[in-house]
Design a binder for these strands. Structure first.
Lengths: 249, 249
DNA sequence: TGTCTACCTTGATCTTGATCAAGGTTTGGT
DNA sequence: ACCAAACCTTGATCAAGATCAAGGTAGACA
């Protein structure tokens, strides 16, 4: 069983929520916005199971509780690029929205995703508050996508790896409600292949760069899925995540 | 004066709109959604002029009429990646939304952008219809960003160039309300440097790949800003834009 | 009309990350 | 406990694209 999967109980109610910080939390935050159905609407997907095919409509709307869902797009010859990554507490699904052509959402990991699914029809002509919340979340997602584009277009392999690890560290600490500090330990929720798809690299390069960061002492690799960071600022520097805030004359 | 800049007349009214197809068109579509101010609210930016700095709020909301606006993000050492490209008819600005840290929106070209600016305060607590429209547009933008990510992460330099040219061809034909056909001619609204920033390449590679496509007979380069396409399908193939619609087992 | 500057092209060489290849490790099923 | 399959690592070589370098072109302006 992977990284601190919160125990889900079919009788849980808001307030018992295992994740808190982000998006709409199906457990504790703004439940009235989602007009939550009864508890039956939790859903779980197995690792590798497809949640929805390209061009179809999302079968659900809610928050990821544990595990990971990914969204990928690929070329005719099989080259694949991950274009979305949903970690615990992330919101998934948009009411009345079809998945864009050739997008694929796949469940990944011991994908223990649980959702409270609302009735779609009530959502589509739903409250202004929900509309606004969805807009807010979608704009946040767009911002993340743009950060990701910077990574894909301009970062070196080593920087890409470091940036990804920073993301995992951040989200991991958030989930556990701990501050990010030196010596932190976190899970790597993706396989090497998925990391490669995430970063626009090959698995060999991913493996090599992780090893290189290890050899430099930036990270301690306990095993392929667990990493410890002795000096968080050093990892941050490796990511070159910092930008110049500049402007164009 | 560049590519067919529509003539803007300070007394124009909806129905005289020079752009039609996409987003909210400030001229003819859904003007009531934007609660348009009077005609004074058109705005023009010079080439290279900055529309808004990182962390600030968009000074306007409306549609690009002509010219190009770009959104870029960069690393501390100056490496820059374009993360947004707004062509005529694209919607610009979100009410009450600050530009993400380190994002920059810059006017580009003989940037003849005109807008009808609505009053922000009325927009922020605006109609459900506008909220929904904004959500729709933001999701479309997210879809484009994801297509762009596939390009950045997995396409070759040649494919990147071809994909970009297809985009320009499409948008150009749309603007002129002509079908895309063989022999079409279109403007390239970016400098080589901007193309490089768009594609995650260097300007030398951009230049070389354009030359290579020319030598292969896929395109006819009239000058750096004007291209003709004898066989549109061939250009499409070069872009490898086609994807497999596949799924993950 | 000439010159300056910004922009573009092409060549030579180098580097990063891809590709090809071989083993090693972990996990899950029986 | 053993085996198979999936996953990961490392090495050797290759190639796409970056970097370094040298002109060329065209529009802006005096």
């Amino acid at each position: 069983m992977p990284h601190h999967v919160p125990k889900i109980d079919a009788n849980m109610r808001c307030g018992d929520c295992p994740i808190r910080k982000r998006a709409i939390c199906a457990y504790c935050e703004e439940p009235e916005l989602l007009q939550l159905d009864d508890i039956k609407s939790y859903k779980t997907y197995q690792a590798g199971e497809t949640i929805v095919w390209a061009g179809e409509e999302m079968p659900l709307i809610g928050s990821v509780v544990s595990g990971v869902a990914t969204l990928s797009r690929s070329l005719a010859d099989g080259r694949r690029q991950m274009v979305g990554l949903l970690l615990p507490s992330d919101f998934i699904g948009r009411p009345g929205r079809k998945v864009a052509p050739y997008d694929v959402v796949a469940a990944n990991e011991v994908m223990v995703c649980h959702f409270r699914v609302a009735k779609f029809n009530t959502l589509i002509d739903s409250t202004p508050a929900l509309e606004r919340r969805l807009l807010e979340m979608t704009m946040d997602e767009l911002d993340s996508a743009r950060e990701w584009m910077l990574l894909l277009g301009r970062k070196t392999a080593r920087e890409k790896i470091a940036s990804m690890l920073v993301l995992f560290a951040r989200r991991g600490s958030e989930a556990e409600d701990k501050p990010i500090k030196d010596g932190l330990r976190f899970d790597v929720p993706l396989t090497r292949e998925e990391m490669a798809d995430y970063l626009g690299l090959t698995i060999e390069t991913v493996s090599r760069q992780v090893s290189a960061l290890k050899k430099s002492g930036v990270i301690i690799v306990e095993d392929a899925r667990h990493i410890r960071v002795p000096d968080y600022v050093r990892l941050l520097n490796e990511a070159s995540d910092d930008s110049d805030g500049g402007f164009i004359a």
